[in-house]
């Protein structure tokens, strides 16, 4: 059980330090073929995996990642509640 909680946190810690800032394959394709300017930025809270109020890039990525884990956990807990409610 511990293993299942600790590993994603560790991966996010490593990701916030080592993850490469290069554009990913699709963005690189868009830049090379000149349709990157068609992108419409959607407005969201943690846009681009960064926490809004933290200036330090490492800390902001770390906080955003941990928040993401929390959101996914809460989403599945809510699904469980809804399933409990609707199941016959």
């Amino acid at each position: 059980m511990n293993r299942k909680i600790i590993l994603p946190v560790l991966v996010i810690l490593f990701a916030s330090i080592f993850a490469s800032k290069y554009p990913d394959t699709l963005e690189a394709l868009a830049i090379n073929y000149g349709f990157a300017n068609k992108t419409k930025e959607t407005l969201s809270l943690f846009a681009g995996y960064s926490f809004p109020f933290i200036k330090n890039s490492f800390l902001s990525t770390l906080c955003a990642g941990l928040t993401g884990l929390l959101i996914i956990y809460l989403l599945f807990q809510t699904t469980k509640k809804i399933t409990t409610y609707f199941i016959k």
Binding site: L7, V11, A15, F18, L69, I72
Partner: peptide
């Protein structure tokens, strides 16, 4: 789900 989310954050050059 959280494992997949964490792994998808890790961009490898």
């Amino acid at each position: 789900g959280s494992w997949i989310f964490a792994f998808q954050m890790f961009n490898v050059p």
